[in-house]
Every structure is written in C-alpha cells, then in structure tokens.
Amino acid sequence: MTTNEIEIAPNSALLVIDVQKGFDDEAFWGPRNNPAAEANTAALMDAWQRSGRPVVLVRHASSRSGSVLAPDQPGHAFKDFVEERREAAALHITKTVNSSFYGTPDLAEWLTARGIGQLVLAGIQTNMCVETTARMAGNLGYDVLVPLDATHTFDLAGPAGTRLSADELATATAVNLHGGGFARVVTTAQVLAAARDRLTA
C-alpha cells in the first residue's frame, strides 16, 4: 500500500504526544521547525473526535532537574488547544521516558482490550518521543502512520561538534521510520482525506 492509498480504520487511535507548554521555551530548547504542527495536530484531533475514533493524550513528566516539563513546572501543562479538547480524549497517559508504551496506564494493554491495530502519531518531538513511539509500535505489529507535518522538533548538537537543524532531524526521522518499515510517513492532509473517505464510504 502506498501513502496515496491510506485507509483509516474505524477505531484507529490518534496519539497526541507531549504537546506541552514547556516546548514553547525557545531559550531552553533552541530553534524549532514546522510552525504548522499545532494547527495540523488540532485538525487531526477534531477529525478523530467528530468520527468517534479514540484520541490518546500522552504527557511527559520529566524527572530531570531543571526541566521545563517537570510535573511541578508550568511547562508540564498541555498547550491550550490540546487542553480545550482534553475532555473528549479516551485515554490520558503519563510517561517519564521517550516511548509512549512505557507510561501509565499501559498503552498496549488498553489498545489490545479494544482491538485497536492502527495508530496515527502526532506531537513533539519528531525525532525523540514521536519516533521512539513509532519504532516501538512498529515492532509490536501496529499499523503506524506518522503525519510528519503534525510534529516538530528542535536543532540538536551531537558528538564532535556535529549539529543538525530541526528540519534535518525531521527528514532523518522520516527516512528512518518509512525506509526502515516502522511506519508510513504521510501528511496531515492525506490522513484527513482518508478519514473523511471512510465516513462517506
């Protein structure tokens, strides 16, 4: 199946990962990419809620000293557009590591109990918690879709002075996930169109 032949299952779960206010702190994170990420994520949330498909909200509770995502910090809170849609979510997960599958309550257990086999992933950061969750989901046998334009990340320094821009890191994630067979990397528009097609079929 190509990315142009997307099918969205009636019970496909949308995972909205770590869309928290702390990621607005440019002094802490540095330059970001994709300013459309929030609007695209909101559009996906609205589409899922209109169709009765489940939305799962994942929030990071950092245990690192000084983190803007620590539970006692204002940055731990969801961004406003997520908070406004929070009550309609089917599940809330809190995690302290990159993968949404290592959180509370147990994501895999919840998905299995409901017979959910397809996941759509949006959120922050593209190359960190989104990519890690997608890799693990692919390993576990889920059909995983990642609308890359509903994610964003930040410039990052690596070993020996290496530095990659947020766009470069997002491209690497797309190649890793799609080329590696963990997930299909698509666009928000493709997912929204497929979700609508399912409703009108």
Results as ranks from 00 to 15, higher is better:
F28I: 08
F28C: 07
G30R: 04
R32M: 12
P35H: 03
P35E: 08
E38R: 02
A39Y: 01
N40V: 13
N40D: 09
N40T: 13
A43R: 04
L44H: 00
M45E: 07
M45T: 03
D46L: 14
D46Q: 14
W48G: 10
G52N: 07
G52Q: 06
P54H: 03
V56C: 05
V56N: 00
V56D: 00
L57D: 02
L57E: 03
R59C: 09
H60T: 14
H60F: 14
H60N: 13
S63N: 05
R64M: 13
R64G: 01
S65F: 09
G66K: 08
S67F: 02
V68M: 05
V68D: 01
L69G: 03
A70E: 04
D72T: 11
D72I: 10
D72Y: 04
Q73N: 12
P74E: 08
P74I: 05
P74H: 12
P74G: 11
P74N: 08
A77F: 05
A77D: 14
A77Q: 13
F78H: 14
D80W: 11
F81H: 14
V82C: 13
V82E: 13
E83Y: 06
E84G: 02
E84W: 01
R85Y: 10
R86M: 09
E87Y: 06
E87A: 15
A88R: 13
A88P: 02
A90F: 07
L91F: 04
T94C: 09
T94D: 10
K95Q: 06
T96I: 10
T96K: 12
S99Y: 06
S99I: 15
S100E: 13
Y102L: 14
Y102T: 08
G103W: 06
T104F: 05
D106M: 07
L107N: 04
A108N: 13
E109A: 15
W110I: 07
L111H: 03
T112V: 14
T112C: 11
I116S: 07
G117A: 11
G117W: 04
G117M: 04
Q118H: 07
Q118V: 15
V120N: 15
L121M: 06
A122Q: 01
A122H: 01
I124H: 04
Q125T: 12
T126F: 00
N127T: 09
M128Q: 05
C129S: 14
V130C: 10
T132C: 12
T132W: 10
T133C: 04
R135T: 10
A137D: 01
A137Q: 01
N139F: 15
G141Q: 07
G141C: 08
Y142D: 11
Y142H: 09
Y142T: 09
D143I: 10
V144M: 08
V146H: 00
V146Q: 01
P147T: 06
L148A: 12
D149K: 04
A150G: 12
T151R: 03
T151G: 03
F154R: 00
F154M: 02
F154T: 05
